[in-house]
Design a binder for these strands. Structure first.
Lengths: 151, 151
DNA sequence: CTTGACCTTCCCATCATTGGAAGGACTAAA
DNA sequence: TTTAGTCCTTCCAATGATGGGAAGGTCAAG
């Protein structure tokens, strides 16, 4: 099957399939004489594995590890579990950061009349020189809201 | 004061100050004869406002709106509140997505022995062809974990 | 043989941020 | 005064995962 059909069947866009190939996450496929990439059901199975890993928020780097463990029949399940739990830790830290932002904002918004007058505690708080550098302090490796898988 | 001191005082890196200037979030500063940017306490105040907005996860675009409302003495507080609440909505959706990922992973990890044997429910689930396209389905505009403010 | 849907590669944009190179400016000490 | 070191300037590139689009080749149906 061609790349478009593999994309359809796996839920990974053709663009991303080519990208995954280019970075070595998936091996280079067989090509037709005309240069078209050809995919097997097995390839689609792998792409689905990758897509579900993405859906769970794993990075491409982690997915590479997961795929190689998946294909290794001698693997130790603790190696997989370690990746998963490490990721859970990151997710939970992110969740806490976002929750702190949301609760701060909700609190401020609660105290804001939201009418046509200019007085606004939200702006006052943002302009408050008393609050130090850190406060919530997003972690060094990951930001606030990222860019999109966007299927 | 020079850009380095303004960076120190505001918690916004010199790099970012130049960037914010280049995109018009802050106005161009006065320069010394040698071309050095010069900042006042007022400028630092604005930079702190911006930094705190970033800490709360607002996008640069939203911050531009907030800054202009902040500087507008005729503003209506409802305009500020609307931006804040819109952002809360986004944050909360993001939180739910991450929570779903984390709980799925924790559940899978619980069922994984995590020993030296190869059997692993985590990989089995990732490889499970029964699960459809969407399932958790990260939203279209924002991804899983983004890049960093990283102070 | 044409049309339209597919495929190819290549480059660009996103978002906020960091890193670094090349070169000029300033400051303190020798 | 020279020199070392730190600061500043601009410009270019990379990050991560993805989409958009152009220019051009291929294929199947009509």
């Amino acid at each position: 099957m061609n790349i478009g059909q593999a994309a359809q069947a796996s839920g990974v866009s053709a663009k991303m399939i080519r990208y995954y190939e280019s970075i070595g996450l998936i091996p280079k496929t067989v090509r037709t004489e005309a240069g078209y990439r050809v995919y097997s059901d097995h390839d689609v199975h792998t792409l689905r594995f990758i897509r579900r890993s993405r859906d769970l928020g794993f990075s491409v780097e982690q997915i590479a590890d997961l795929v190689s463990l998946w294909q290794d029949r001698e693997r130790a399940s603790k190696d997989v579990k370690a990746i998963a739990l490490e990721h859970v830790t990151v997710l939970e830290r992110k969740i806490r950061e976002l929750q702190e932002m949301a609760s701060t904002l909700k609190h401020l918004a609660t105290n804001c009349h939201g009418d046509t007058r200019p007085h606004c505690p939200i702006l006052e708080e943002l302009a408050n020189d008393e609050i130090g550098q850190g406060h919530v302090k997003p972690d060094a490796k990951f930001g606030v809201l990222g860019k999109a898988p966007a299927r």
